[in-house]
Design a protein around this nucleic acid. Sequence first.
DNA 1: CGTCGACTTGAGTTAACTCAAATCATGTGG
DNA 2: CCACATGATTTGAGTTAACTCAAGTCGACG
Lengths: 231, 231
Amino acid sequence: MSMRERFEGIPMFRGLPPQQMEELGKIVITQSFKRGESIFLEGEEAHGFYVVSSGRVKVFKISFEGKEQILHILGPGEPFAEVPVFAGNNFPANAEALEQSSALYFSREKFFSLIEKVPQLAMNMLAILSVRLHQFTVLIEDLALKEVPGRLAAYLLYLNEKQESPEQVTLDITKTQLASLLGTIPETLSRMLARMTSEGIISSQGTSGVRLVSIDMLGKLASGEVRLSKR
Amino acid sequence: MSMRERFEGIPMFRGLPPQQMEELGKIVITQSFKRGESIFLEGEEAHGFYVVSSGRVKVFKISFEGKEQILHILGPGEPFAEVPVFAGNNFPANAEALEQSSALYFSREKFFSLIEKVPQLAMNMLAILSVRLHQFTVLIEDLALKEVPGRLAAYLLYLNEKQESPEQVTLDITKTQLASLLGTIPETLSRMLARMTSEGIISSQGTSGVRLVSIDMLGKLASGEVRLSKR
DNA sequence: CGTCGACTTGAGTTAACTCAAATCATGTGG
DNA sequence: CCACATGATTTGAGTTAACTCAAGTCGACG
């Protein structure tokens, strides 16, 4: 695969002049990870950032008792660990490969010198960090102000937007991972899906398929306008 | 006050060449707000960002039922609402003056043209957004993985670092605001302070003073290593 | 000195958790 | 292609941290 092909698929680098693509190719290192393999741990010293090349990666926090909260799940083309490039010197969270994955690694030093030649890169990075901040405000809002059914409803609607088939979504991660992403535990998630099914809001389609029977009710759940009835 | 004096106190602009300070002065607008006055609402169209000049400002989310979660409390020199400058077109949260305050307003358009002349501004902004992202990961971790006593302990230790007097802090916001910042309600905060006092971990010093009797125990509470005993 | 918001305390409720025990799904070695 | 091992998921029973609602009390400002 040519440099151009490798970097065109990465939003952060899209549209850079070919010569800069070549420069990028000189500073990049490719790393592979097996399923479940740790990429970095919170607190470790960071010297650069990554872009997922293939597979999927989760970035997460973990509590003293071992409960985890997923911050992001990243797929091909998405960068992660950009924060310690510009502030602090340590990874603020953990990262692990969810499946066999490969990632491009850019050292901070080399990336900085590239930014000087291509100021547009700094603007691209500003946009990326801003999107992340926005995503985090939504996660904070969910955790602090919504109940689990509301977060679940919001996630189902998000999948419905992202995926093609109308009113029919496929869970792209295990329910255990989804529970961690929504700030709850698998048992609770299972019960909420059961309640939403018995209320006629959703219905199960095979192992990981969910049909959104009432988009309207999901919207009201997600906004907090209504709640799921008891038991 | 000269332009230079006005901008030297703002970390984001510190060290800019005098000529750029003059440029800044040309694009800035000063706004004042009374205590409790709204600065912007979530979802409104955004055309620029602010820097607190005097007073204090809270940035917060609010639920359908009216419960609020404070995202930041900002003082002089700190920018806010930078996100919609680089991603999205709308404010992702609400902002309100906690006391009589004034803020400098920079329109996106004019700020962009300034960045082109002063690339260092983009790097400063990257550092600011990165710090914010880091703060948000901590807040997410607190909300998802810690109990209220742990969050409170962490906040007291944070104040202890920030303020000068050793093992003695002054709450700089009302307990109602603190509850909202910690993701809880005033009643719960009041009970937790009472429990920490009866456990001999802290003691009350007047209305808003708190003496940190056992820094060690606060640290263990904040990390989740120990819990507050019942009732 | 009165008023309004801030703070505290009591009593009861509840959403979500923990712990335990099946059951199901997936993939691997034989 | 089958049997089992391992992790994912579900369901039941009980517990709990934190919430809601209610009722004062406190305190700063006009």
